[in-house]
Design a protein around this nucleic acid. Structure first.
Lengths: 144, 144
DNA sequence: AATACATGTAATCATAATTGTTACAGATAC
DNA sequence: GTATCTGTAACAATTATGATTACATGTATT
């Protein structure tokens, strides 16, 4: 099991909008860089727009960032593209048998541990911004 | 997307083996508590056995723990039941376009961040043992 | 040996999520 | 009005999950 690549593609989209900020960043342009279908990109753009991360309008070509680079964390993107729900990174079997001491308690015992693990993962994402990503790529391209 | 309930069920199995340590813990008995099919349990028992967490033998009813409770972490169970591969909690789109500065760098830039997030999650699992789980349930049952 | 019962394992199925594809409606600019 | 873009829905291919059935294999008991 893996978390959907919508997350990675969402980061790609936002990063490329920044790199191409002087130009027009259409869904087709983005799709070419990501190597996927423009409709896939437009669906993701809709999610990013709904989350207030980009500005994009019907009929008008190109998307723009709606916030400062340093003000968008990877956690924001992660939430925007809806890859993992709150407290649902781990799934727990639904109906264990209530006549068994383990069966009737396992869910309540495990749930806070799973939630803590999920939060620890998400904390890492909160501590990385798009600015970090853009700068890292700029460094790799020697254009810093 | 959620991580397979094999993980939660694996914890359930090991915990119930401990609670029933005076008796015979067969796949049918476990299946009844988990509320699933015995064949599902036997498949998981095979994984737990392969990881050295339980002892179980063909033809002989019942499974036993192969280690001390305090010596089995939830991370051990997580690895045993094979729910998430190393560095693969997050998936990254495979073939971005190499002619684009973002396309040719995004994978290498994102991968260490994703790995760090996965490791943070797994660290929480490493710090919880089956003993913790068993004691928590015992407390809830007022049999501590 | 024969029987009963357990584990080990493969095949199959229903369901759900993901990703890509096509198509088209609606909005904008020229 | 035409061209171009976004927004969105419908559909298909692929994959993972979890349940189910069936049966081979191993052990204990009689």
């Amino acid at each position: 099991m893996s978390i959907s690549s919508r997350f990675a593609v969402g980061i790609h989209i936002l990063t490329l909008i920044e790199f191409n900020k002087e130009g027009v960043t259409s869904s087709e342009f983005l799709a070419s860089s990501v190597n996927t279908n423009p409709a896939v990109i437009r669906k993701l753009m809709g999610m990013l727009k709904k989350a207030g991360l980009i500005e994009v309008n019907p009929g008008i070509a190109g998307a723009k960032l709606a916030k400062e680079l340093s003000d968008i964390t990877l956690f924001d993107v992660y939430k925007a593209v809806n890859v993992v729900q709150e407290k649902e990174l781990f799934s727990i079997h639904e109906t264990p048998h209530p006549n068994c001491p383990v069966g009737r308690n396992i869910q309540n015992t495990i749930e806070p541990i799973f939630t803590a693990a999920q939060l620890a993962m998400e904390k890492v994402l909160r501590n990385v911004t798009l600015e970090d990503v853009v700068k890292d790529i700029a460094t790799k391209e020697n254009i810093c």
